[in-house]
Computed example of a mutant assay.
Amino acid sequence: MNVSLKPIQEQVIVITGASSGIGLATARAAARKGAKVVLASENKEELAKIVQQIQNEGGQAIYVVADVGRQEDMQQIATKAIERFGRFDTWVNNAGVSIYGRLEEVTEADNRRLFDTNFWGVVSGSLVAAKHLKKRGGAIINLGSELSDLSIPLQGMYSASKHAVKGFTDALRMELEEDEAPVSVTLIKPAGINTPYPEHAKNYTDQELTLPPPVYEPEEVANAILYAATHPKRDIYVGGASKLMSTLNKVVPGVVDWVNQNFMTEMQLKDKPARHKEGGLHKPGKGGKVHGTYEGHTQKSLYTRATINPVISGVVLAAASAAAIALIGSNRSKHGNGQYTRRKSV
């Protein structure tokens, strides 16, 4: 069934995890383009500030304090959106958190909380959105990761949750298509993004956390999300590195495993003592910031821009992939002698 999506300026867009990072970047970008936005997170103070900022700039926005791990909270988001704007047209399941720690060290309680947010939040949000959108049409956009297609050490349960998000999203898409529902379902797969993600993660190590390169700007993900809100797409990779690693994992999985097991742990740790141990796993993380504190080079995604703008030539795609490979290789050399001190308890 052909799905017809409205222009951004005619849409009401719901965004979870909207008080920082990708969610905040998307909310601001959507509001500037004329969309009415419904922001949801657990951080009431920051949400109120963000909504006021959007309104001061002439935009229309409301916020809903919600824990995405609670199904009733997700229903409340939909109810508030309909009460205020009469409908919603796009629902973005963005909220997420991570844990940096070896699988045998992380507690079951922490793992379950991670899945409540990363997986069950997506499930509840998608089903609430689908019930509304099946009657009128629209888009459901779920945030996966390059780790929806492969896994890395130290973030094993996060990788598992993003695999689960992919499986659920694909099944939901098929069932809606089977019902001939006028709903687009898109999975966004970002590479490493310079948001406060490491600071919001729970940290089982003794070292400060970081992201493995290459790392992209959060505005690149926001652009991809807003593109998916107006153009039915199955998947969008944000960052040539995301597409590259996904493809390599399908073609030469053993090689990807070898690279990750030999280099990926130290590439996620700084040579500094840990400061942010608890993060935002069990309580709201510090909000209000789109960008994180990544100390290396960050970049725009030529690959993603080419994906959503076919006019850009294949030469640009090749250049983006080559740049991603070069960055990964240089960082391996830099961190080849890194040390990882394991903690036995938190």
Rank of each mutant, 00 (worst) to 15 (best):
W258A: 13
A31N: 02
E219S: 11
V106H: 02
I312V: 10
L24V: 03
T247G: 04
V122G: 03
L176I: 02
Q207E: 11
A164M: 00
W120A: 09
E83K: 14
E46I: 01
V165E: 04
I13F: 03
K289H: 05
H335A: 04
E42W: 09
K334W: 08
G192W: 01
A78C: 12
G59Q: 03
L47H: 02
N331H: 14
L244F: 14
A323N: 10
M74I: 08
S145H: 06
Y100H: 06
E208L: 13
V128N: 04
H200V: 15
E10W: 00
L103A: 15
W258R: 10
V311D: 13
H335I: 01
W91M: 05
T210S: 12
K289Y: 14
V259N: 15
S313E: 07
A171W: 00
Q76E: 12
K80F: 11
F88P: 11
E104A: 13
P273G: 01
T230Q: 12
I236R: 05
L39R: 01
A40K: 04
G314C: 14
Q155E: 04
I325L: 08
K283S: 12
E146R: 04
D271R: 14
Y237R: 04
P153S: 05
G314Y: 06
E104K: 09
E266C: 12
L172Y: 00
G21V: 11
F263N: 04
F168S: 02
Y303R: 08
Q339I: 11
A27R: 05
R342G: 03
F119L: 15
K250N: 14
K250A: 15
Q71H: 10
E217T: 14
M1W: 02
A130I: 04
R112G: 04
V221I: 10
H297Y: 10
G58C: 03
K202R: 13
Q60F: 05
A129N: 05
E104W: 14
S148A: 08
R112P: 00
G125F: 06
S330M: 14
V65K: 02
V68L: 07
A326V: 00
S148I: 08
T117N: 06
